[in-house]
């Protein structure tokens, strides 16, 4: 039981990171109907920028807790800003010229952009792993007890708390942004009908750009969390995380924000439980198999709207 609870906590943490990346996929898919293959690599760029700012600000584990939190908040903001510029640029270079072109063209440029970003980071930052000493250690014991002469502890580390809380706050903020602000309104309008939205005075290009900026900023947060949680990054982390996050987005029903979060949580939980109870080698197989099974029985995902086909 305690093992189960511990895995549950770990799974929710991993799921939050996937969920944050998945939102970027789902928003972009919702608005222009394409898989932004480079999004996983934007996440990777985000984790690199986060590491740079951490080193530049001189944050170490010895920094007093209060200053540490404030500094990490600054890192978060800087990472979001600089990564967002990357997200914006990718859209501007690779996707905007192909708007209204046939469906496979942006997919190919997205794959090209993903290859280019990975190799750009590899050449500019080197291929070696970049390890970071844990900055935040310790945690609280959720349950502590003795079962048949064996002490067991279920621990929720401070890092996991930070990840889960940040994700919840950002989710709330973005849901409000989409449902309450005028930007969110124009986004939803573009999602439904771009031509009509343009006729009614919505700047479609600007809205799409801002969608990419928002997606990239969230991926940057995920990058920072990934860096702090796992303590090691390299130029290749974007691919697998990106594929998993896309899986999460599809699982939850692509185009739906709560769906992306739910999908992320499910993928994180499946992966953690699978490696906890069966074998860690086949955890990716487990995640992908669930995706296949869900899509076969619910082709539009868990919370997605079924597509209506008209002749």
């Amino acid at each position: 039981m305690e093992y189960f609870l511990q895995q549950l906590i770990n799974g929710v943490t991993l799921g939050s990171i996937y969920g944050l990346i998945a939102i970027g996929y789902t928003m972009v898919y919702g608005i222009i109907g394409m898989i932004n293959f480079a999004h996983g690599d934007i996440f990777m760029v985000g984790s690199f920028i986060a590491l740079m700012t951490i080193i530049l600000l001189g944050i170490t584990a010895l920094t007093p807790a209060f200053i540490l939190l404030a500094a990490l908040l600054l890192v978060l903001v800087l990472t979001m800003v600089f990564t967002a510029v990357w997200g914006w640029t990718v859209e501007r270079i690779a996707y905007r010229p192909l708007r209204g072109s046939f469906r496979l063209a942006p997919l190919i440029t997205a794959i090209g952009m993903s290859i280019a970003l990975q190799n750009f980071v590899q050449t500019s930052q080197g291929a070696t792993n970049k390890p970071l000493q844990p900055l935040i250690s310790g945690g609280i014991k959720v349950i502590e007890g003795i079962v048949s002469d064996r002490v067991f502890v279920v621990q929720l580390s401070y890092m996991q708390m930070i990840i889960i809380v940040t994700t919840l706050v950002l989710m709330a903020a973005f849901t409000a942004l989409i449902s309450k602000t005028s930007l969110g309104r124009s986004q939803r309008a573009c999602e439904q009908d771009q031509k009509m939205a343009a006729l009614l005075g919505v700047d479609v290009d600007r809205t799409i750009s801002l969608t990419f900026v928002m997606g990239a900023a969230l991926a940057a947060v995920a990058g920072l969390m990934f860096l702090l949680y796992y303590g090691v990054i390299d130029f290749y982390i974007g691919f697998l995380a990106g594929v998993k996050a896309f899986t999460a987005a599809v699982l939850g029903g692509i185009g739906s924000l709560p769906g992306a979060m739910l999908g992320g949580l499910l993928i994180g939980l499946i992966e953690t439980f699978w490696s906890g109870y069966f074998s860690s080698e086949y955890k990716d197989v487990a995640a992908f198999s669930i995706l296949v099974i869900v899509l076969i029985f619910m082709p539009s995902g868990l919370l997605g709207k079924p597509e209506v086909e008209k002749v």
Partner: peptide, 8 residues
Amino acid sequence: LVFGLLMV
């Protein structure tokens, strides 16, 4: 890197 950019 060039390969990726060429594709784009």
